[in-house]
Write a protein that binds this DNA or RNA. Structure first.
Length: 868
DNA sequence: AGCACGCCGACT
DNA sequence: GTCGGCGTGCTC
């Protein structure tokens, strides 16, 4: 997508200048984006920077500002000496919310790029960059109004005309406290409700809103001596002989004057905090609260690891990356390495190189593979210099990891999607592991793709990007020089450099793959979910004491309930989608609106009692395994068993310790796991993804099969894989079983070219929704028409360039109704130097009135990964 | 997003 | 003649 740098940078011009070029004392005004995601407020507002806050305000600061009648959170996006507005109409910044700005000028600029590219409000992009713990929170307070209607008296006492004694009492209480939250008020005066309402209405009391203050850094009490060693000993002598504990404590600090945490001290010396307090009161010891970092890995020891010797292929790849790092150039590498080829070791050594240059590195991994194993490898190599951004961290922990980055205490961040926004100032390297994973796409606004954001950010820093995968996405592969014809000359210098590692470390072979035709099984009279081959193979592993991984690639909504008499399928009354059966709660649930109702005892349509549950879930496979292999130990890993904190790690730990023979799970068992005793992998049904209405279905199937097959035989013992399918002839299954990425690529590229899908074009999905179909249809058609009109205008200015643009639809969305709102979508396919984002922004702007008055919703997904 | 201001219907 | 509906516009 073309990015018109000029227009995007325009608003914030000056904000990217190095701060040093502006003397702090000259900065009088700040441009602030406020926390109101609306069209009319989507621009910077000027504020006065009070002189006492000047030191603390910089581009990227989070501030509390008065906006209309209330106080809002905002982000400083620019600083200036002048303002176009007359000073009398400007208000001052009320507070700076963090000691360290959570963002920096480069990230503020990146937010600008995001809001343009993904068509969202600036505040939405800015908020997406900071950890959840820093999201805006507001508090409402009640105070006595400045000009209390009802009058006051010179003596400072207030008469309240027409006020009851209770009301007098309430006002006195508020006056005494200054300000009070509603909760405090109601706990003090349980029946204050109606009085409060009246006092607020009459203007005696007023409601004020503030931005809830910064999340507190964790504080721990530390104790240290306040006087010299000699004095401590002298005091100790003078104490009465009964004060044994106090004497002991003084002698302790005479020996060691190091500050010690109070908790540790009392533990060590077996005394109560009171003893310490006694001496502190005398002024001999000081107790002070110190800020500490919450360290989620505090009690873990990570064995330091040294760089491993590299294979020839690894060395070649590392050298390429290192050369680019040494030149401090921006470059994107696509590292295609088969499973087990040692990509992680290459990452580690490349990061080391980057750190040696005094630069920082970000490692993105799919949330699902952010396992303890993974964390261990990075902590083991880089120790304290690593911060982990994990979805399961508490708000406090996450906030602290973030602060460590700002304070330059860490040099490497490893985390999921949003870790790409780590506020580093000299980024040298971004690694995106399993780059093909669709979890790098955020499905809520801003609907960004971390891979695209990474490349944009790396450009700004002159940093290298390494996209690693055993099964690269077609989009990324197409950007390597191997496929030059796809994009025009502009792409030539931004082409990705393809690096290949085709061999596993120590020359271990890839596992043998058997494709089992389930139709043949059925013909042979086998109606079990296990083919004869897989059955036998599992039996063998049990005998040999080896382990098996079983994949049942069942997405949450596949289980549906149907009446066998009339064929009725239980559906959600508000959304056009089947309800899913949840065995734990014995309820039928809607995946889209959260509706939950008891399981039907008889068919709602024909009252028949022949109700059948379709779709095999992991629970059923577990049952079946127990029946077929008595005594078998199975660990089931799916959303149900891993929802608890730490459950994931615990289950994998048990499997590693040979406390189970089989690990059975959904996608989550396919990625990144590395267990020496796993010699068998079984895919129960390979076709589930294949038949989804998605142009990436074949690609996803190929990726999943290749990934899961890669779990087998990674160490001394050779591996074996069984893929069960009803369509064994499908090219994605054939090529996956032959570990043949190249052939898959050829077939798939040809199909994409014929059907006009990425990487032969770019996609944007526009979804419109409304409660009434007629209005929706009209809006959809008019949206498409306007867009086409814009294109006609645009194409004239692109004369001579090879550009393509087409709007498809509107048509009903794959799920035509959610929460009683109907949905239509337009698909946009384009190619070349077209600023589609700008065109879409302009088109949606024309619909503002319909959006506002008729409650039409327009959602725009640039580079969508799911076409719903 | 809130909130105030402002112009047309059903009511004491 | 007024209370109140929500259309329109503003917030540094």
């Amino acid at each position: 997508m073309r990015h018109n740098g000029g227009s995007a940078a325009g608003l914030y011009e000056g904000s990217l200048l190095p701060e040093e070029t502006k003397a702090k004392e000259l900065i009088r005004y700040a441009q602030v984006i406020v926390d109101v995601p609306a069209k009319q407020t989507n621009r910077p507002f000027d504020y006065i920077v009070p002189s006492e806050l000047r030191e603390w305000v910089s581009v990227g600061s989070r501030v509390g500002v008065p906006f209309g009648p209330r106080t809002l959170q905002g982000f400083v996006v620019g600083l200036s000496e002048q303002s176009a507005m007359s000073a009398s109409r400007l208000k001052p910044i009320e507070q700076v919310l963090d000691l360290m700005p959570p963002l920096n000028p480069e990230l503020v600029q990146l937010a600008r790029w995001m809001s343009h590219t993904y068509i969202c409000h600036d505040i939405t992009a800015l908020q997406a960059m900071i950890p959840g713990a820093l999201k805006a929170k507001y508090e409402k307070w009640i105070t006595v109004a400045d000009t209390a209607a009802g009058g006051g008296s010179p003596g400072g006492q207030t008469y309240l005309l027409d006020a009851s004694p209770e009301e007098e009492e309430i006002v006195a209480f508020v006056r005494q406290k200054g300000n009070v939250t509603t909760e405090t008020m109601l706990s003090r005066f349980p029946n204050a409700g109606p009085h409060l309402k009246r006092l607020l209405e009459r203007g005696t009391l007023a409601e004020v809103q503030t931005v809830k203050d910064r999340l507190n850094a964790k504080k721990v009490l530390y104790v240290e001596p306040a006087v010299s060693r000699e004095e401590l000993l002298a005091h100790s002598e003078k104490l009465p002989s009964g004060s044994k504990r106090q004497k002991e404590l003084l002698r302790f600090f005479a020996d060691s004057s190091e500050p010690l945490a109070l908790a540790e001290l009392t533990e060590k010396l077996g005394m109560s905090p009171g003893t310490v307090k006694g001496l502190a009161d005398k002024g001999w010891l000081t107790v002070e609260a110190r800020e500490v970092f919450r360290d989620p890995y505090a009690d873990r020891q990570f064995a330091r690891t040294e760089p491993l010797p590299l294979t020839e292929q690894q060395a070649v790849v590392l050298k390429e990356i290192a050369d680019t790092l040494d030149r401090r150039a921006h470059r994107v590498f696509l590292l295609h390495g088969v499973t087990g080829s040692g990509k992680t070791e290459v990452y580690l050594q490349a990061i080391q190189r980057c750190l040696d240059q005094g630069r920082e590195a970000i490692v993105l991994v799919p949330e699902i593979s952010l396992t303890p194993q993974m964390v261990e490898r990075f902590k083991g190599r880089f120790g304290e210099a690593v911060a982990v951004m994990h979805s399961r961290l508490s708000n406090g922990e996450r906030y602290d990891e973030w602060r460590k980055i700002g304070l330059k205490k860490v040099k490497v961040v490893i985390g999921a999607r949003s870790a790409i926004f780590a506020p580093f100032s000299s980024l040298g390297l971004v690694i995106i592991d399993e780059e093909h994973e669709s979890s790098y796409k955020q499905e809520e606004s801003p609907k960004y793709h971390a891979r695209d954001v990474a490349v944009e950010r790396a450009k700004q820093h002159g940093a290298a990007v390494v996209l690693g995968s055993a099964t690269p996405s077609l989009e990324s592969f197409a950007k390597t020089a191997k496929q030059p014809a796809i994009e025009s000359e502009e792409a030539a210098d931004s082409a990705y450099k393809l690096l290949t590692m085709s061999e596993r470390v120590e020359g271990r072979p890839l596992p043998a793959v058997h494709v089992v035709d389930l139709r043949e099984e059925l013909k042979a009279g086998n109606r079990s979910m296990f083919s004869r081959g897989l059955h036998e193979a599992i039996e063998q592993r049990l005998e040999r004491g080896e382990q098996t991984v079983l994949l049942l690639n069942r997405r949450g909504y596949s289980t549906f309930v149907m009446c066998r008499s009339c064929g009725y399928v239980v559906q959600c009354p508000h959304c056009d989608i089947s309800l899913t059966y949840h065995q734990v709660s014995r309820t039928m649930r809607c995946h889209y609106c959260g509706l939950s109702e008891p399981e039907p005892k008889k068919c709602p349509s024909c009252e028949s009692e022949h109700i059948r549950y379709f779709g095999t879930g992991t629970q059923r496979v577990e049952e079946e395994l127990g029946r077929l292999f008595p005594g078998i130990r199975v660990i089931r890993m799916d959303v149900d068993t891993t929802s608890e904190k730490g459950a994931h790690e615990k289950l994998l730990g048990r499997f590693r310790n040979r406390q189970a023979d089989v690990l059975l799970g959904t996608q989550m068992v396919a990625k990144g796991l590395d267990f020496p005793l796993v010699t068998l992998v079984g895919v129960i049904a390979a076709d589930t993804v294949l038949h989804l209405p998605d142009f990436r279905a074949a690609e996803k199937t190929f990726q999943l099969l290749t990934q899961v097959a890669g779990r087998a035989g990674r160490h001394q013992l050779p591996g074996e894989v069984f893929i069960q399918t009803y369509t064994p002839e499908h090219y994605s299954i054939v090529t996956a079983s032959g570990h043949d990425y190249e052939s898959f690529l050829d077939s798939e590229l040809e199909l994409r070219r014929l059907r006009g899908y990425p990487p032969y074009c770019e996609l944007v999905l526009v979804t419109l929704s409304h409660e009434q179909v007629p209005l929706l249809v009209r809006a959809g058609e008019s949206f498409a028409a306007r867009l086409k009109q814009l294109w006609e205008r645009e194409r004239l200015s692109l004369s001579g360039e090879d550009a393509y643009f087409e709007v498809y639809g509107p048509v009903a969305s794959p799920i035509p109704r959610i929460k009683d709102r109907y949905r239509f979508q337009c698909m946009i396919k384009y190619r070349g130097n077209v600023d589609v984002s700008a065109m879409l922004a302009e088109t949606s702007a024309a619909f503002d009135e319909t959006v506002r008055n008729d409650k039409l919703l327009i959602s725009i997904d640039v580079n969508p990964q799911v076409l719903m």
